[in-house]
């Protein structure tokens, strides 16, 4: 975020700022990344003070992006159209099991854990209420839209999860990975380490879940 803000300021584009002391760039990312998750492709909204040519926008900003960060595309929307954040209903994560040196995890073990997890009717996620003492639980099982395990020979096991997101509830991929490990207790599963990347965000278009890139 900081990287992007600085790149934008360097670009010389006509950026819009919030009013008042401590003016902020009017830049909003569609859905903030959970801590510890790397980003595959992110979406954001930026307000400008005047209309600029899209190619010019892309080239001005691209020139200021450090290596490792690439602007895939930009499109102009009317200022009053619904915000990206309100459109996002799900996101897909890709979790790769990091096999620490020398230690092997039996694929069958992960598979059975995944089956057990999906067979549950209820997965309770504690949620601290406004008052610290009050803890309520949400059943997040319905938030798992899809769970898919890829066990390719010679590659690290990969778990792809399509999870609900949005202002009316969501679930962290790490919480589910933790629950997954609990499904196979006493098997060393508590030492599993996952590298999690967010692959894409999803919105609803014509009644179906589609990646944000196609829907917008």
């Amino acid at each position: 975020m900081r990287l992007l803000q600085r790149a934008l300021r360097r670009s010389g584009l006509p950026l819009a700022y919030s009013q008042g002391y401590n003016p902020r760039l009017r830049l909003v990312l569609a859905l903030p990344l959970p801590l510890g998750v790397t980003a595959g492709r992110e979406f954001g909204e930026l307000y400008l003070t005047e209309i600029v040519d899209l190619d010019y926008f892309v080239s001005s900003l691209s020139a200021q992006l450090p290596a490792g960060l690439r602007l895939v595309g930009a499109s102009a929307v009317a200022a009053e159209s619904p915000s990206l954040a309100s459109l996002v209903v799900a996101n897909r994560y890709r979790a790769r099991l990091k096999l620490s040196e020398g230690k092997l995890v039996k694929p069958a073990l992960i598979e059975s854990a995944a089956i057990k997890l999906m067979a549950k009717e209820e997965i309770l996620m504690p949620r601290s209420g406004k008052k610290k003492k009050h803890i309520s639980c949400t059943n997040v099982r319905p938030y798992i839209f899809e769970l898919q395990l890829n066990l390719d020979q010679g590659a690290d096991p990969v778990l792809v999860m399509l999870l609900k997101a949005g202002s009316d509830g969501g679930v962290s991929p790490f919480f589910l990975l933790h629950k997954l490990a609990e499904c196979e207790p006493d098997s060393g599963s508590e030492t599993w380490q996952w590298l999690v990347e967010r692959e894409s965000l999803y919105m609803i278009s014509n009644g179906a879940l589609v990646p944000l890139a196609e829907g917008v």
Binding site: Q5, R6, L8, R9, R10, Q64
Partner: peptide, 8 residues
């Protein structure tokens, strides 16, 4: 400075 760094 601001143009070259993007600092706020």
């Amino acid at each position: 400075l601001i143009a070259s760094t993007g600092y706020d």
